[in-house]
Design a protein around this nucleic acid. Sequence first.
DNA 1: ATCTCCTTATTACTCCGACATATTACAGGA
DNA 2: TCCTGTAATATGTCGGAGTAATAAGGAGAT
Lengths: 254, 254
Amino acid sequence: MAEEKGILKEAGGSDGGGAKEARGPGRRLHGAIAHKLGTAILSGQYAPGDVLSGEVAFAEELEVSRSAYREAIQVLTAKGLVESRPKAGTRVLPRNRWNLLDPEVLAWAFAGEPDVQFVRDLFELRAIVEPAAARLAAKRRTRDDIKLMKDALAAMRRHTLATEAGRAADRDFHNAILNATRNDALQTLSASIGAAVNWTTQFKQRARALPRNPIPDHARVFDAIAAGDAEGAAEAMGVLVDLALEDTASAMTR
Amino acid sequence: MAEEKGILKEAGGSDGGGAKEARGPGRRLHGAIAHKLGTAILSGQYAPGDVLSGEVAFAEELEVSRSAYREAIQVLTAKGLVESRPKAGTRVLPRNRWNLLDPEVLAWAFAGEPDVQFVRDLFELRAIVEPAAARLAAKRRTRDDIKLMKDALAAMRRHTLATEAGRAADRDFHNAILNATRNDALQTLSASIGAAVNWTTQFKQRARALPRNPIPDHARVFDAIAAGDAEGAAEAMGVLVDLALEDTASAMTR
DNA sequence: ATCTCCTTATTACTCCGACATATTACAGGA
DNA sequence: TCCTGTAATATGTCGGAGTAATAAGGAGAT
């Protein structure tokens, strides 16, 4: 308890260039606090119903000002993780109040060891949304959409999923499809699902070098969408998600 | 510009009990500011790329402290609506960065006259997610789930959708289905979709008294889920969403 | 004339200390 | 036992001061 301090700010102090804490440029202090608390909550370190220490006490423990701490709490509140009330304190909300599809919350969930069941839930959502999105994309895609998908696919071929560039291309591909639906709500999901795909892909790579060549699956989806074959696109995407789930599941249970 | 002030706090000042502003008990000041700015952004009053006035200026204009204003900005930042950087100021992000499925953002979107296209997008999402959810619910529902649905259905029969109690029962029914899927990601969508259903239902009621008796549709879905008929549940839910879209569309275009 | 590097001004960021407000918890009385 | 009023406490709000980061503009070199 008493030695939990100094995580956010310089711990040692005199080492010249080693500022490798959670605070880079572009990462504000309150963002770092929110990240710390967010991962702590998502990892189960604070359970729903738990009451956090008072503002003054907690801010002092973290060695930050009350303002910075409060702003971090506002972020968590905005994402449905906690709720603050005068006199009652700040308590962690039940899990069904959490905005699990918020990209940042998703990142926090995957910061530690991710819950297997939750990964399955995300794939179930992908299996529902992405085939339907592919169906719509096949109907509504423009020439520009097709070009974006083609470029992303080519980039996936060049790099592999083992590289960050390859994963970025993978995300671009899925994003291009969801954007082609011309549906803002689906595009919002795109960011969340894209993040999930990214994390799970990393896990796949962590386990074994290259579980399966993902290009053919993606190419089938692309061909169907480019051809305007709605049902074919939906089916191909369904296969793609199923295979991805299979690979990820085998990578996580070993 | 100069006369935009005094909206958040007491305007007159001497009226004894008339505090009917956007600040009830349980609604903090920074929440009210976030609401005000959020609705302004969602309604297009601030376009993506616009830069807000500086902290000091804007806080002064709103007649609130900088702390409260900053905490409100953190909320908007957490929902992807704005981004703040030193020297550059706080600017509204492009629409594809907005967390449109965040319940609060959704509420802001429906605070004014909602965009017709966006409502169509939401129904398209419902048409994708809810039938699939009904399919899963039919497979996984427990006796408790069935009881919750049955109770909600009964409540819908007693009250009508014209009453708040009736709409709450409608939400409970859909929530019960999504909870029965035992999928946390889908349950998170539940909150968003539930909110959307709520707002659109209000619009339906606004137009004509009772466009259609919704009970038979809901009852069909319930029967199929209770019987464990996955495909039947999916199909019945598809019909329900289609009819709801039809009613809402005709109510909005008149 | 174009580009690079550096200086500078502006803006958000962080901190501090004080007071106001809301809500829980407890004590007292019916 | 239940209700009512009171007091304690944690969050909420405020104002100001100082720091750090960054975009813009200017000096210098190519």
